[in-house]
Amino acid sequence: MSDLYRTAIQARFAKAPQLPPLPGEDEEEDEGGDSVGSLPTGMGPPAAPFRTPRTTRKNAPNPSYSPISASSFFEQAMQVSVPESDLDFRVYYTAPKFEDGTVMICHHGAGYSGLSFACTAKEVTDMSKGECGVLSYDCRGHGKTKHISSPNISEQENLDVEVLTSDFVNLIRVVFPDVEKAPSLLLVGHSLGGSVCVRACPILQQHKYRITGVAVIDVVEEFTLEALPLMHSLLNARPDGFDSPEEAIEWHVTTHTIRNPTSARVSVPGIIVPAPDGSPASAPAYVWRTPLRSTAPYWTSWFTGLSSKFLASRTARLLILAGTERLDKELMIGQMQGKFQLVVIPNVGHMVHEDDPTRMAETLVEFWRRNERVVVGVKKVGEL
């Protein structure tokens, strides 16, 4: 029965190519023009701008930081056509083994990709013994998600939070079109992704999807909004690009932007691309796939109202933070009233799910078990 169920779920996707090649392989050669940005936190300590001409660089790639394929972490990588959003989404997916399983729907932070959840996804499916599947995708303007109408044209994306929320809902409705047969969903979002998940939750519930809970990773409205004015100075400290994917991975690890080398080796190659044809010799060989500055008009809207929307979610709520004393007033009151579960994971940075995927998976699986397998008379997290 479980094999038939998994086959039926997988057949709902529009296309199912092999897992994507790493940057530098044939598929990546035409992707140099992609654009959009990263989020205001978790960039690591400042680094000097990268201005060494390509022709004079001597550093050979460090094999300790060589890229790792995503095939060890997800069962499938595929493109899912969503005409309503005019997008062909890149989706990474491991289906639950059982018909009554749950699927965690993961939305990455701005500037990253669905592969930022790769290590956590593998841990979740292992810990839940396949009862909980994971779907992670590249949102609009990120990774390998492309426009259907103009797949090879670089254009300024509309990254308004309402547009991203609509994309999220549209994708779910294409992947799981039959609400009665759809698995229960646990929405998991990092930073900007958390804001999208919180907004998408009531819309999906209006469409009669079963939402087990919503988990927000390392974003608090008040402190994030306060940090936004510092963004441009932080951007000035980031490298313009890198000699190789290995150098990009090494930079993320040595600056503690991502503290887990294994996760960085999976996720970082997806956030850089070869420099466009015709770039000057002084340009780096690889550049950011999603330049941050172009997203500046959207920064404030991404997070304004997040705390109140999170507390108003009509489902179990989980907030995972990378440090203590980071709740704003609204969340502090909500926590005292028992409206959500708070978990603080020590010794990690902003990329909590990459830095400690084992602890992240333990937290998510425990939250899922508590709220999906509810015993009669036991309240879900957030129920008064």
Score class of each variant (00 low, 15 high):
residue 260 N to F: 08
residue 257 T to W: 07
residue 291 P to Q: 09
residue 262 T to S: 11
residue 257 T to P: 00
residue 269 P to G: 10
residue 271 I to T: 11
residue 274 P to H: 01
residue 253 V to P: 02
residue 289 R to D: 00
residue 258 I to K: 07
residue 244 S to C: 02
residue 253 V to W: 02
residue 248 A to V: 05
residue 244 S to K: 02
residue 277 D to S: 10
residue 264 A to L: 09
residue 261 P to E: 02
residue 263 S to L: 13
residue 264 A to E: 08
residue 285 A to T: 10
residue 291 P to F: 08
residue 247 E to V: 04
residue 260 N to Y: 08
residue 271 I to V: 14
residue 275 A to C: 12
residue 277 D to C: 00
residue 264 A to N: 11
residue 289 R to K: 14
residue 255 T to P: 13
residue 286 Y to N: 02
residue 269 P to I: 05
residue 289 R to S: 11
residue 286 Y to K: 04
residue 270 G to D: 14
residue 271 I to S: 11
residue 249 I to E: 00
residue 272 I to N: 08
residue 253 V to R: 05
residue 289 R to V: 04
residue 253 V to A: 06
residue 273 V to I: 10
residue 290 T to K: 00
residue 290 T to R: 00
residue 280 P to V: 04
residue 271 I to H: 00
residue 261 P to C: 01
residue 253 V to K: 03
residue 280 P to T: 03
residue 265 R to F: 08
residue 285 A to E: 11
residue 258 I to R: 06
residue 261 P to I: 02
residue 291 P to M: 08
residue 283 A to S: 13
residue 280 P to H: 01
residue 257 T to Q: 15
residue 268 V to E: 03
residue 258 I to S: 10
residue 264 A to D: 07
residue 250 E to N: 06
residue 279 S to M: 01
residue 285 A to L: 12
residue 258 I to E: 10
residue 269 P to E: 07
residue 268 V to R: 05
residue 272 I to R: 08
residue 290 T to E: 00
residue 278 G to V: 03
residue 269 P to H: 10
residue 277 D to N: 07
residue 261 P to V: 03
residue 274 P to R: 09
residue 278 G to C: 02
residue 267 S to E: 13
residue 285 A to Q: 09
residue 271 I to C: 10
residue 284 P to W: 03
residue 277 D to V: 10
residue 289 R to E: 06
residue 270 G to H: 14
residue 279 S to P: 05
residue 274 P to S: 07
residue 279 S to I: 04
residue 282 S to D: 13
residue 252 H to G: 12
residue 275 A to V: 10
residue 284 P to K: 05
residue 250 E to L: 08
residue 268 V to I: 15
residue 260 N to E: 07
residue 282 S to M: 10
residue 276 P to H: 02
residue 281 A to M: 12
residue 281 A to T: 09
residue 274 P to D: 03
residue 253 V to M: 05
residue 255 T to H: 15
residue 271 I to L: 09
residue 265 R to I: 06
residue 283 A to I: 06
residue 248 A to G: 09
residue 256 H to K: 15
residue 275 A to Y: 04
residue 264 A to W: 08
